[in-house]
Design a protein around this nucleic acid. Sequence first.
DNA 1: TAGTGGTCTAGACCACCCC
DNA 2: GGGTGGTCTAGACCACTAG
Lengths: 249, 249
Amino acid sequence: MTSSALNTDGPIYRRLAEQLRAAIETGEFAADGPLPAERDLALRYQVSRDTVRKSLKLLETIGVVYGDHGRGTFVSPPAVQQMSRFIDGFSVDTSKRGETAGQTVLSVEQIPASIAIAGVLEIEPKRLITKVVRIRTVDDRPVGLQEAYLNLPQNSSFTLSELAEVGSLYKLLRARFNISLAEALESLGAIAAGPEDASHLNVEQGSPLLLCERVTLSDRRQPIEYCVMRYVSTYRYTTRINQFSQLTK
Amino acid sequence: MTSSALNTDGPIYRRLAEQLRAAIETGEFAADGPLPAERDLALRYQVSRDTVRKSLKLLETIGVVYGDHGRGTFVSPPAVQQMSRFIDGFSVDTSKRGETAGQTVLSVEQIPASIAIAGVLEIEPKRLITKVVRIRTVDDRPVGLQEAYLNLPQNSSFTLSELAEVGSLYKLLRARFNISLAEALESLGAIAAGPEDASHLNVEQGSPLLLCERVTLSDRRQPIEYCVMRYVSTYRYTTRINQFSQLTK
DNA sequence: TAGTGGTCTAGACCACCCC
DNA sequence: GGGTGGTCTAGACCACTAG
């Protein structure tokens, strides 16, 4: 590895990926232009070609570059680079569009799980879970009303002010309960705004809202969070797809 | 590789992945149970451990298994396996839910591109593009109205009956024009049904619809298709997220 | 401590693109 | 033909988990 030291921890291929992404962002490698050949990168950074390939593979999965057999590896168009979706999506998505994401935590409370939510979280009904209600804002305008139900370790919870301070629910889970989230399953649809939505989101009853349900799983695929979100019709949920249904291309 | 011959083409790691997935589906490896250790799989299938790892990595990205450092590789819960999203999503998603996907092609015509669509497809306005209007059905009930705008090679197009016969637009593009799609960018929101939506989808004007816009890119990241879809409120768009916003975990 | 997945290497050969 | 990414190998060592 050359100097320019930003991160000294983690595996080499990850650090190299960061360096390459930084080089792309600073324009060292032109948008939509080719990167140096893998063998050249290996020489330049003094690592094996396989390590270079791991870096490029990582960058490809997050939409920063793409490889084309026999031609080279290319920087993805800006539109593609902005469309990757992540578990902690809301703040990141919004800030990538040059807007400011915010939130107002309305309540944090412990309640017994309903049958429906117990089913989703794979726990027995009436077990105590933590319910969080938040309003999501973009540039200080309310865009979404969000209810999250968390299955935390028994007899543990957190307060409204703790969450408001840390800002991110996921950071709080990791720092406070050593829970790391690995995967999320989302389901999107459209519904008409009810009275509560109307007052919180400042829209008329019956107007169309984007409904998003999510189940978030830990690294061992235990359901940790069930979350229902309703967004105003000006909000856009964006995602990038780069997979095929068939194992056989 | 052992026998059981299903596919004899493609790289070894891909064929192995198919075999492993088949073994999971037949219950040879229990749901949520561990797979044999990588070194054992390498011995059993007479390939290097690295090739085994490539297979497992592929299965992990499509949500079939997940690895846990120091513990093993495990079969993903069924809910996760069903939630991967692919470019040719509609038919696959629907059939995975045990329903029957269908479509009615309303029209296929060549029109000059509007300024807006020319911009998205990165072509000059008024260039001839192909417009396809379809109604998507689930179990013969209309659920979505879909308009697609395709930038095909100059002076080439296809007919309504050709599309109706092949069924899949993506298969047609590949077979007829040798265009292979690599990536799609999607944007979802909610809108109120207009008069046209109301009549085609059999809903009332003003009722909430799920709006989905998509730009599909070729393997060289050229925009090939711009597509607008409107779905009734009972339809659900599902997706799986397994990435993090930070390169550094 | 033993077993597991994760990283890294050096080298070979194949498949594809373009001149 | 020469350059590119794609596949495969054999072996080494590290990091994590669990009994």
